[in-house]
Structure formats: C-alpha cells, structure tokens
Simulated scan of single mutants.
Amino acid sequence: MGDWVMAQEPVIRLGFLFGVVGIMATLEVWRPRRPLSVSKPYRWINNGGIVMLDTLLVRVLFPAGAVGLALYVEAQGWGLFQVLDLPGWLVLLLCVVILDFIVWAQHVFFHAVPALWRLHRVHHADLDFDLTTGLRFHPLEILLSFALKAAAIVALGAPALAVLLFEVILSSMALFNHSNVRLPEGLDRWLRRFIVTPDFHRVHHSWHPNETNANFGFNLSCWDRLLGTYQAQPREGHDDMTIGINQFREPEWTRLDKLLVQPFVGPDHSYPINRRPEDAPAHRKDPS
C-alpha cells in the first residue's frame, strides 16, 4: 500500500488540484459573490507565481514530501497510532480530524505571534477574495507550516494514506472556501454546520481586526464554534465589507516581488491577537 500511495501521490494531488480549480473558477464566473477590484488575469499571474515558488521550494528542500515522511515513520514504527491497536478506518479518520485541528491551531498561532503574523499577513493583504487567495502564502510560512505538519505526522505515526487524504482535503477545501462564489443562503447555512464555506471564511478576510481574528478554520467548522472564534457574518455584510488589512492597500503590493518583501516592511501593527489597540502605532490605528 505504501509504495502505491507514494507512486500515485503526484497524480492524485494534481488531479484534485486542477479539478477543483477548474470547477471553482467556472463557478466564480457563473455565480460571483463580489466584483473584483484587481483584474483576474493580474491576480492569477502574481498569486500563481508565489504558489509556484512555494511548490518548488518545498520539493527542493523536502523532496519526499509529507507522504514520504509518513512512509518512513510507518517503517520505523514511530508515533501514537503505530502502537495503538485500532482499526485502519478509525486511524484514517482520527488522523484527518487531528491534523485538521492542528492546522486550525497553527493558524491561530500565526495570528497571535507578531513575527509570524508578518509572514501570514501576505495572505491577508490580498485586496480581493477568490480561489487564488487560498494559495497565496509567503514561502517562509509554507516552510514553517511544513515543519509543524511533519512534527505532527511523526508524533501521531500517521499512515501515508491518511496524510495523502488530509493533504487532498485541505488543498481542495482551501480553494473552495476562498472562492468568490455565491452559494444559495440555505445551502450555506446547512454546509457551515459541518465545513467551512466561502461566506464562513470570508469574514476572516475582513479588515476589521476582530473579524480577521475569527473563523480560522479551513476545513471543519466545529473548531471555531467550540473554541469561541466563530462569527456568523461580517458587520458590514458580504457585499460592502472591505477585504484585506489596513496596510499594503496600494495595487502595487499585489505584484509578486512586493508579496515576497511584505513581511520585512512596516510595523507588525494592530492585528496580532495579543496586540492591544493602544499598542498599535498611531499612524496605523485599528480600523474598527
């Protein structure tokens, strides 16, 4: 099974990636939620450029990837689920759920530590919200995220199939819930009981700090509900809300070269969770 998973990983991951991109891109044209302030081709070129850099960097530094690491962990017998006698299906389910919670907690952590927020704000500084936003992360954040995920895989002893399943779900859901798609209200209300929908996650991309620091989930919606970070709707409504943060609002900051230097420019500002409004620089007051 392990050899099959490793051999098929690129085909499975790329197949889902291009399939979900094609579906959501089509829906964004057919049922857009909001008009874009920056043209779609320009956004795709620059946001896509940083995705390519991220992918190349991870493949160069970690050629085996998360699935390869999971295979090694299985061979060594490391981790919690390698010593527990549980049915295979239950191990798969538990690994996916636990890894999803770890990603949720990591997301909160990147909002709480000012130095990490500098990296993560590249994702939040997008002036629009569409499927390419779900792939727009600074390369240093991608490397840190991979390291945290690797540590979780080793600690859990997550099987390769579970890691592959989780990776496919996470990337597909990130594209789905960052998409600029208008879902029927009834469907959104039903879906968000279980998973993160575009309207659910768009709140997280509001420029108001209390909304930026809400709705951290990428896949399961239960973590925000259970842990007190859920906000149902943006205060200004989805049509009138301002996307982004109150830095880097000039269109030039959407260029690839500017995205790469954003973490090293300006103050870390008032958005980190543990930063009180009075700690923010005077010229960067909390927009709330």
Rank of each mutant, 00 (worst) to 15 (best):
F137S: 09
H138E: 07
I142C: 12
L143W: 01
L144I: 15
L144W: 15
S145T: 12
F146Q: 13
F146H: 09
F146N: 08
F146Y: 15
A147F: 08
L148W: 11
K149D: 07
A152V: 13
V154C: 09
V154T: 08
L156P: 02
G157E: 02
G157P: 03
G157V: 00
A158L: 04
P159N: 06
L164I: 01
L164H: 03
L164K: 03
V168M: 10
I169V: 12
S171Y: 03
S172V: 06
A174R: 11
L175C: 09
L175M: 14
F176K: 00
F176D: 04
F176L: 09
H178K: 10
H178T: 06
S179F: 07
N180I: 02
V181T: 10
G186S: 11
G186D: 05
G186E: 13
D188E: 07
R189Q: 14
W190G: 05
W190E: 07
V196G: 08
T197D: 08
D199H: 09
F200L: 12
F200I: 04
H201W: 06
V203P: 02
H204E: 10
H205Q: 11
S206F: 00
H208W: 11
H208Y: 14
H208K: 14
P209G: 11
P209R: 15
N210Y: 14
T212Y: 07
A214D: 06
A214T: 05
F216C: 05
F216E: 10
F216H: 10
F216G: 02
F218N: 15
F218G: 15
F218V: 13
N219P: 11
N219T: 15
L220R: 10
C222S: 15
C222Q: 14
G228W: 12
